[in-house]
């Protein structure tokens, strides 16, 4: 088993209202088989033994499906490997002696709660505005009564693979959440079940996005490059089409 020694520069911030600063820690004897979060666990273990406050970071599934984890690692959201969440980033992608700078997502809409933990409830607010379809209760309808072409279903599924981690916002030079909103709108816009509310959905979700203080998309494409689920900006283009249809073309 190979092990490496690293120097960490970690953003420490006691609470949201505090100023925050970088602290330097040595991470010695880190197995290259560990994930990034396991490496932080080791560092935290030692900090606790020394009687210091461990580094706070968000995580849950640790298998890249829940979207809880995430931090800027050397300027890359979720680290430099593409299509990977922070929990699935392995230490074998780092070399002995590396210095790693770890910062929380930075956005006006994502307030730092503590250290690397940010409040992403802004995403929930956007979802509440239309990230759903309305279905009446009653007997369950038969499956496959509404035909959906396979390629369309695939596209909807690709959009629906968004785990809401916030990396698109963090990586966007403008702090925009358009990839998230575009994916959430696309997954419904593509399917017949999503069409009845399509018009209201795009307008409501977009208004909420803007209201929360996210930036404006200028097609920098950094979001799709950093998305752990490789969601494409084609979804942003689709959202723009939905917006044009809803705001300009329909009466």
């Amino acid at each position: 088993m190979k092990s490496i020694n690293l120097t960490l520069k970690v953003w420490r911030q006691e609470r949201g209202s505090d100023k925050g600063r970088f602290e330097t820690y040595d991470a010695t004897g880190i197995s290259t088989d560990m994930s990034f979060l396991e490496m932080l666990d080791v560092v935290n273990e030692r900090l606790t033994l020394e009687g210091k406050e461990p580094i706070a970071f968000d995580h849950d599934c640790r298998e890249g499906i829940c979207g809880m984890c995430g931090a800027m690692v050397n300027g890359y959201a979720h680290g430099h490997e593409s299509g990977t969440t922070l929990c699935q980033l392995h230490m074998r992608h780092f070399s002995d002696g590396d210095t790693i700078v770890i910062e929380p997502w930075r956005s006006r809409a994502f307030k730092v709660v503590k250290d690397l933990v940010v409040d992403r409830s802004a995403f929930d607010k956007i979802i509440q505005e239309g990230g759903y379809i309305s279905v009446n209760t009653g007997g369950a309808p038969d499956g496959n009564t509404i035909p959906v072409p396979q390629d369309v279903a695939e596209k909807a599924m690709d959009a629906a693979s968004c785990i809401g981690c916030g990396a698109c916002v963090a990586a966007c030079p403008n702090g925009s959440a358009m990839l998230f909103v575009g994916a959430k709108i696309s997954q419904f816009a593509l399917l017949p079940q999503g069409r009845p509310e399509a018009k209201d959905r795009v307008l409501a979700m977009l208004n909420m996005h803007d209201e929360l203080g996210f930036g404006n998309c200028s097609n920098e494409r950094e979001c799709e490059a950093r998305c752990p689920k490789n969601i494409s900006i084609v979804n942003i283009a689709r959202m723009n089409r939905e917006f044009i249809k809803a705001a300009l073309l329909s009466e």
């Binding site: 970088f22 800027m72 300027g75 700078v101 494409r221 950094e222």
Partner: peptide
């Protein structure tokens, strides 16, 4: 951010 990097989009 104190460190920013491009990932190939910008």
């Amino acid at each position: 951010y104190s460190v920013t990097r491009r990932s190939g989009g910008r």
